[in-house]
Write a protein that binds this DNA or RNA. Structure first.
Lengths: 230, 230
DNA sequence: GCTGCCCCGTATAGATCCCGTAAAACCTTC
DNA sequence: GAAGGTTTTACGGGATCTATACGGGGCAGC
């Protein structure tokens, strides 16, 4: 599926390097090999690989240092290899930017499958489940950047306003009940405080220039809830 | 970045559900629980969770079937749980759309770290193509050389200041939540120490000559986080 | 067509939360 | 022990949220 992806292997053990080299080339990847952290970083900067396999136990520099330095300027997926099975080590590596962690000895098939996952998630970021933004020409809502613009001008929304608007947007076209809005935005203890909704919806309409009597986006369903018109 | 992300747990074993429920809520996630595949699919459709934890051994439907059905309309990250350690099972699950595979018994800390990886990679897909340096004419940030200059004059930053600035820069234009900043710079145990951010951001603004009321680079998103304006 | 009721929209004021800033204590490093 | 960095603590100001009150429109029943 991704035949010519470049994979950088940073490992000091020659037999592991050779093992991975053969396995990766058999799958059609282009392989870069490094035996030290410094060499690996140089290769990463020079060739911008699509994926990095990094051994935690390197001779010249700790694997963590290499990962930290790499993460200064690159978001390339990194799969950590290690003989250490300690949970704290895994947590540390994963929280510092590693994308996966496999302990030696490992099965080559599982490793290859995990590589495919990493390459897949990187290759197809756009096809997210829910659309990341809404744009009808006048109103633009970017859920990733977390900002809203009307006719090109940014609209400043408070937390509650943004939460209500995006909750309605995620169910665009369908009615969202007052109870669901209150539960998800204010918490389960405020499901009867329906006046909150009147305040926030009023403010949203004011900022978006929407008329409750003839709504362009935010429609009231009396006695039930609200609906985002797409 | 994940202020109260929604996590859906699909598992038929009550003690595992309870275990995960407590652990996830302690980390600040909103938790949805399902004991069967059908129930899980219904919840996924109704609430569009940010992440799914799916047990491979379900009573009514095979975990693989649930995964396949979910993947027909959603790209939500899925972490598979299983007692089976067979490599072929892992490869099958990973190649059919799972994003990670953890075998029971598992350490809760490792599982949480892997969840963070999945949520991070999903929330920041555009990070892949970030350049290694930033330059808008006044402010120059070189992520490789690790130095910052304002109007040609070097700016001395401490480790925390640099870490916060570059984390915001790597998500330029998008809001980075207080929790993500705290988790990635100070570690997962300090996600509630929001006053650290006020101190470091204040110092950064002082050194860069940025006004919080009319920011050129560092914009506060009240109650949510901060944003680097590019 | 009238009336009363329910629900919604809006205005206003008070309480609360959140941010920015300063200063000092503590820790690390040399 | 000195210096720089980090963490703790405290406080003022402003934005946001919450509470309350009031007006209007749709609808049912008469």
């Amino acid at each position: 599926m991704n035949p010519s992806a470049r994979v950088l292997v940073i490992d000091d053990e020659p037999q592991i390097r050779r093992f991975l080299d053969i396995g990766l080339r058999a799958e059609g990847y282009q392989v870069l090999l490094a035996s030290t952290g410094a060499e690996g970083l140089a290769l990463a900067a020079a060739h911008t690989p699509d994926l990095v396999i990094l051994d935690l136990g390197l001779p010249d520099r700790e694997g963590h240092e290499v990962l930290a330095e790499l993460r200064q300027w690159s978001a390339v997926p990194v799969l950590m290899l290690s003989v250490r099975d300690a949970e704290a080590e895994k947590v540390k590596a994963l929280d510092h930017g590693a994308n996966d962690y496999v302990t030696k000895p490992f099965g080559i098939q599982e490793l290859m499958a995990r590589l495919r996952v990493l390459l897949r998630s990187r290759a197809a970021p756009a096809e997210a489940g829910t659309p990341a933004h809404y744009d009808d020409g006048r109103l633009v809502i970017d859920l990733v950047r977390r900002d809203v613009a009307l006719d090109g001008a940014p609209v400043a929304l408070t937390r509650k306003e943004y939460a209500v608007l995006t909750l309605l947007l995620r169910h665009a076209g369908r009615v969202v009940s007052q109870q669901q809005l209150l539960r998800e935005v204010w918490g389960p203890t405020h499901v009867q405080d329906t006046h909150y909704l009147r305040i926030v919806l009023g403010r949203l309409r004011q900022k978006l220039g929407d008329d409750p009597a003839a709504p362009r986006w935010l429609k009231t369903e009396p006695g039930v809830g609200y609906r985002f018109l797409d």
